[in-house]
Amino acid sequence: MITLYGIKNCDTIKKTRRWLDEHQVEYRFHDYRADGLTAELLATFINELGWEALLNTRGTTWRKLDESVRAGVDNANSAAALMLEMPAIIKRPLLCAPAQPMLLGFSDERYSQWLADIAPAAGQ
């Protein structure tokens, strides 16, 4: 089962959900705010994707942070602490499927390829 991680009111999450529904992709949505985010789950994301990729430094949440807080985020531990405290600062969407590479961000082309790559595994 594919899991889509993000925040319900995010425009890119809404776009992703529309795309998945239009392509009749079965998935489960995990809202960081409603469903929570554990340190273990976040560590899984960081181990595969890297903390730099996960940290959304282009979003409003990051820009609203005090400069001293932003400057203090310079390694995986400090980034993880901030992401656990403020899940809205995690880049989204994040798609996960068992035994498949995670897919971060929205791209029609990348989603189509990712789904094509996991389709044989889903059929087994």
Rank of each mutant, 00 (worst) to 15 (best):
L4Q: 07
Y5M: 09
I7D: 05
K8W: 02
C10W: 01
C10T: 02
D11C: 00
D11V: 00
T12E: 02
I13H: 01
T16R: 11
T16E: 10
W19F: 14
W19M: 09
E22W: 11
E22L: 15
H23D: 03
Q24D: 14
Q24A: 15
V25H: 11
Y27V: 13
F29S: 08
H30Y: 05
R33W: 12
R33E: 15
R33P: 06
L37D: 01
L37E: 05
T38W: 10
T38Q: 09
A39T: 14
E40F: 04
L41Q: 12
L41I: 09
L42G: 02
L42S: 03
L42A: 06
T44V: 12
T44H: 10
F45K: 11
F45S: 12
F45Q: 12
I46K: 04
N47F: 08
E48K: 12
G50W: 00
W51E: 04
E52R: 12
L55S: 00
L55H: 02
T57W: 00
T57P: 00
R58D: 03
G59R: 10
G59E: 09
L65Q: 13
L65E: 07
E67K: 14
V69F: 07
R70H: 00
V73S: 12
D74C: 13
D74E: 13
N75C: 15
N77R: 12
N77M: 10
S78M: 11
S78A: 15
A79Q: 10
A80T: 14
A80E: 13
L82P: 06
L84A: 08
E85R: 08
E85G: 04
M86G: 03
M86K: 13
A88R: 07
K91S: 05
K91W: 01
R92D: 10
L95Y: 07
L95W: 04
C96I: 14
A97D: 02
P98A: 11
P98D: 10
P98V: 08
Q100T: 01
Q100R: 04
Q100C: 03
Q100I: 01
M102P: 01
G105P: 00
S107D: 06
D108V: 06
D108G: 04
D108Y: 04
D108N: 08
E109Y: 08
E109A: 15
R110H: 12
Y111E: 02
I118H: 10
A119G: 02
A119I: 04
P120W: 06
P120S: 09
G123Y: 03
